[in-house]
Simulated assay, not measured.
Amino acid sequence: MPFKFWKKDEKKPEPAPPAKPEVKPEAKPELKPASKAPAATPVKPAVKPATKPAAPTAKVVPVPKRTPEEIVTEVHRALVEFGLAVEATREVFKKRIAAKFGSLEDFERKMKENPQSIVTGFVVSWLGFTVPEKFDLGNLLYEANQRLSSFGMQVSATDEISVDEAQGLREATFTLGNEKVVLHFHNPREVFNEINTMIRDRGLRFIELETWSEDYAFMLVKSPNWDVLARGELVIVKAEETATDGECPECGSAIGERWVTCIACNSPLEA
């Protein structure tokens, strides 16, 4: 086998590397300038309503308790306002109250139970008089003339007779000065109604007070305050001027507050 030792090894040229594909640079997206955000409307801070300063707490001043003497003084002042008493009798009034009830304190306690009954009853015992349902005409006129004599007047009655004994109807002739009247009557109220007619021009009047019984009570007054008396405060007076509390269920006549009987038909009234 021939040796070709004399020939040098010839290096064959290496094949050229394959051409790399041309890579085009990616086109960068065009960046648009960011649109400006609308300017925010400035927010005004909330205005707190002005608060009024708290009013100072009013101090509760306790009403001082009235003494029994003050209560008695107020009752007398009311009687003066009613036209049933005069201011000059205040001290006498206090003494009479203490004598009748034992003390001013006892009067105050009684007043809390039923002021109208207590005060009306006292006024009758102090300034008025009572007449029983079955009455003697002479005794009635004696009580009336005891009051009328202070004004120079006297009422007399003659020729009294019984007209209807079963119904208690009587007749008599009443005289005041030169005036004479023949009257039929059943009860004391009818007699005093006639006497009031006779003394009307003198500015006087016998008023009837409630007794809460079958008896009658009267007192002589000069200038009663009817507007106040009609309210039935402390003293209950039975008259047409104080009949402001409805009608009598029997006869339909006007009646007053806390009346026991109707002054027109004498029927009992519900309490």
Rank of each mutant, 00 (worst) to 15 (best):
K4R: 11
K4T: 09
F5S: 09
K8T: 15
K8G: 10
K11A: 11
P17L: 12
K20I: 11
V23H: 10
P25G: 09
A27K: 15
P29R: 06
P29Y: 04
L31S: 12
K32W: 04
P33Q: 10
P33W: 10
S35W: 12
P38W: 05
A46W: 13
V47I: 05
V47N: 07
K48E: 13
K52C: 06
A55Q: 10
V61Y: 06
V63K: 14
V63A: 13
P64S: 12
P64A: 10
T67W: 11
E69D: 15
E70F: 08
I71P: 09
I71G: 09
V72K: 00
V72L: 05
V75P: 03
A78M: 12
A78P: 05
L79N: 03
E81L: 11
V86P: 15
V86N: 14
E87A: 14
A88E: 12
K94S: 07
A98F: 05
F101Y: 10
G102D: 02
S103P: 08
E105A: 11
R109N: 09
I118D: 00
V119Y: 00
T120H: 01
T120M: 03
F122T: 05
W126G: 03
P132R: 02
P132L: 07
E133L: 10
K134F: 13
E143H: 13
A144P: 02
A144W: 01
L148M: 06
F151V: 07
A157F: 02
T158A: 15
I161T: 13
S162T: 14
E165R: 14
L169E: 02
T175C: 11
G177N: 05
N178K: 08
K180E: 07
H186Q: 08
N187I: 10
P188M: 01
V191L: 04
V191Y: 01
E194K: 08
I195T: 03
L204M: 05
F206Y: 05
E208M: 10
E214S: 09
F218G: 04
M219D: 07
L220N: 02
V221W: 01
L229C: 10
A230M: 08
A230E: 08
E233Y: 08
E233G: 12
E233D: 14
E233F: 10
I236D: 01
E240T: 06
E241R: 12
D245K: 07
C248L: 00
V260P: 06
V260T: 13
I263A: 00
A271H: 14
A271P: 07
